[in-house]
């Protein structure tokens, strides 16, 4: 199998050589997602963590039992830790367009690399949340007949996401396979 990549869609997102020590079954250059996605991820994490700790602090505030404060405090601590590694986590997201498939990787502690052949893509979905929209970013989702494939590339600049979607749909069309 050749390792060459197809011509990139419109603009070339930053690429990164594979870091040492990480799971890397197909060595080569990965395309990284926009670093602005760190903001999106951080906002999501912090807001989620704050809401959850506010909810968990209700028993403590209502009853006044001191040790119940451990729940919101623990949640806040975990939120902080997650927020601290968010930049690294976002940098770990990468994808690559190869000859016959799209390879996607993410995760630091729990790493996962997925390869989806173009012919197996049933649909390509571009979605945008409110924060992503404010920052002009989109998320690209690939759907295959297998629910376990679950590939979604977050943090793509909107123009990139759309051109990537178009080229993926075109590739899928030319290599269409059955189920």
């Amino acid at each position: 199998m050749s390792q060459q990549t197809d011509p990139p869609p419109a603009t070339l997102p930053p690429t990164a050589p594979s870091a040492a020590g990480r799971l890397d079954p197909v060595p080569g250059e990965w395309r990284r997602v926009s670093s602005r996605y760190i903001v999106v991820d951080l906002v999501g994490t912090v807001v989620g963590g704050l809401v959850l700790s506010a909810f968990l602090s209700l028993p403590w505030l209502l009853s006044g039992v001191l040790w119940l404060a451990a729940f919101p405090a623990g949640t806040l601590l975990v939120t902080l830790l997650v927020a601290a590694i968010t930049p690294r986590r976002v940098r770990s997201i990468g994808y690559r367009l190869r000859q016959d498939d799209l390879v996607f990787r993410r995760g630091i502690l729990w790493q996962r690399v997925v390869a989806v052949p173009y012919g197996r893509m049933q649909l390509v979905d571009v979605t945008r949340g409110p924060i992503e929209r404010a920052l002009g970013m989109s998320q690209l989702k690939l759907v295959t007949a297998a629910a376990a494939s679950a590939v979604s590339i977050p943090g793509l600049p909107q123009a990139d996401a759309e051109s990537l979607r178009d080229s993926l749909v075109e590739l899928a069309e030319t290599r269409r396979a059955g189920l």
Binding site: L23, W110, A115, A145, A146, L179
Partner: peptide, 29 residues
């Protein structure tokens, strides 16, 4: 082979220390 939808390889922190990894063939549900 002709029915494989996609392939993934995964590794947790323990697996990383032990140089072990898992694989998953995605087929229809």
């Amino acid at each position: 082979f002709a029915r494989i939808q996609s392939v993934s390889i995964h590794q947790g922190w323990l697996g990383r220390r032990m140089r072990l990894a898992g694989v998953h063939l995605h087929t229809v549900q």
